[in-house]
């Protein structure tokens, strides 16, 4: 944290960081991961109310009296936990890239 204290002060410095290859690499890595996953979880999430509202396919039995609606509902939990762990793992890599940007920014 101490190392992160404002080494960058003037506006031109921020511009040069934005232009730098290491920062561009960080942005593109983040975009490649965050945008598709975000689209995916929104689709997965809204699929449940859309299916329950406009069809009865989820009312079919899965095992015993448990219907697919409950299975899909539980899958939402599994998806949330799974994507949470996936994000933590990916973010460790973003941290490395960000550290690189910070070091270059401090040296320039």
């Amino acid at each position: 944290m101490e190392a992160r204290k404002t080494k960058v002060s003037s506006e031109s410095d921020y511009s040069s960081i934005v232009q730098s290859p290491s920062f561009q690499a960080l942005l593109s890595e983040k975009k490649k991961f965050i945008i598709p996953v975000t689209i995916f979880f929104f689709c997965f999430y809204f699929a449940l109310p859309i299916l329950t509202s406009y069809s009865t396919v989820l009312n079919h039995k899965f095992i015993g009296s448990i219907t697919w609606a409950w299975v899909f509902a539980f899958m939402q939990f599994v998806m949330t936990w799974g994507l949470c762990m996936l994000y933590s793992k990916k973010a460790a890599k973003f941290d490395e890239l960000a550290n690189q940007v910070i070091q270059e920014g401090g040296n320039s």
């Binding site: 960058v8 506006e11 960081i17 934005v18 920014g105």
Partner: peptide, 11 residues
Amino acid sequence: EEVLVKSNTGI
């Protein structure tokens, strides 16, 4: 650009 750098790196 400042916001972009700060939000992504914590600088």
